[in-house]
């Protein structure tokens, strides 16, 4: 805090810091683990389960209402996520991929729903758990379908290279497939949601500060810009949230497909 803020604390706009945006207090005092993201994560899981329960509990041949919407989602995941990477195995893995896509999508869309307004995936613990489970599944499937030696041989020694260069390139393959890939899998989702939430919070703070808390003739246009940018970025965020959920499920399907069949 510098001298200016102490002298005149009303006059300065303060941008929101990550600490006050993401380090939320527990909802019930004393229960430290039960914070807003945990509540929203559980709520999203219940919503996704309820949605598909309502849609597919007693399916009709001619779909109506909720079943129609759920079938559009199912077709999208099957045609865009599962089939390109899994081919004829796609139907076996649809359960996993469909729940993964819709869970991540529900987590993300919480960021723009009024009163919830917190993308769950902007706490890295949540995408990290999903990415680690996909990673364990990937290694398990690879060892099971290609054998313990064959899996690592296919991964670390791609065919078609001169022999001595393997000494230099195998460590790169190993690190890239087994450590960097799951890391970027989680971080991509986390970073997008984190940055998106910061951006929305910043622009809405600008609008609120310059139009309501501290209305001046010079500041009012900046406040209007803040409100307009909030609206534009909310629409943009909804697109990004959908895209990130799709990419998360797509990469999961890609890793599973890569473990089921050896490359080339």
């Amino acid at each position: 805090m510098n001298a200016l803020t102490v002298l005149n604390p009303q006059d300065q706009f303060k941008a929101p810091t990550p600490d006050e945006l993401f380090n939320l207090p527990p909802i019930i005092p004393g229960v430290d683990w039960f914070t807003k993201p945990v509540l929203l994560a559980l709520l999203s899981a219940v919503i996704v389960i309820g949605f598909f329960w309502a849609a597919f509990a007693s399916p009709k041949i001619v779909p109506r209402g909720v079943q129609n919407a759920a079938e559009v989602g199912y077709m999208f995941v099957r045609d865009q996520v599962a089939r390109p990477f899994l081919g004829k195995d796609a139907d076996r893995w649809m359960g996993l991929l469909l729940s993964l896509f819709f869970l991540v999508f529900a987590w993300n869309i919480m960021g723009v729903i009024p009163f919830a307004q917190f993308p769950v995936a902007s706490h890295i613990a949540f995408p990290a758990v999903l990415a680690i489970s996909i990673y364990v599944l990937k290694v398990y499937l690879g060892v099971r379908h290609q054998g313990p030696i064959g899996y690592f041989k296919n991964m670390m020694f791609p065919p078609g290279l001169p022999k001595p260069i393997y000494i230099l390139l195998s460590p790169i393959e190993f690190l890239s497939n087994l450590i960097i890939a799951p890391f970027t899998h989680a971080v991509r989702l986390f970073a997008n949601m984190f940055a998106g939430h910061m951006l929305l919070a910043f622009f809405s703070m600008v609008g609120f500060w310059f139009l309501f808390e501290h209305l001046t003739p010079l500041g009012a246009p900046i406040g209007v810009i803040g409100v307009v940018m909030t609206i534009i970025f909310t629409a943009f965020e909804m697109f990004i949230q959908f895209l990130q959920a799709f990419l998360f499920a797509m990469l999961a399907s890609m890793y599973i497909g890569g473990s089921l069949h050896a490359e080339h």
Binding site: F85, I172, N177, I180
Partner: peptide
Amino acid sequence: ASAAWSIPSYLLA
């Protein structure tokens, strides 16, 4: 798709 997605991780690795 798998090539384009794994290129950044190869470079980082």
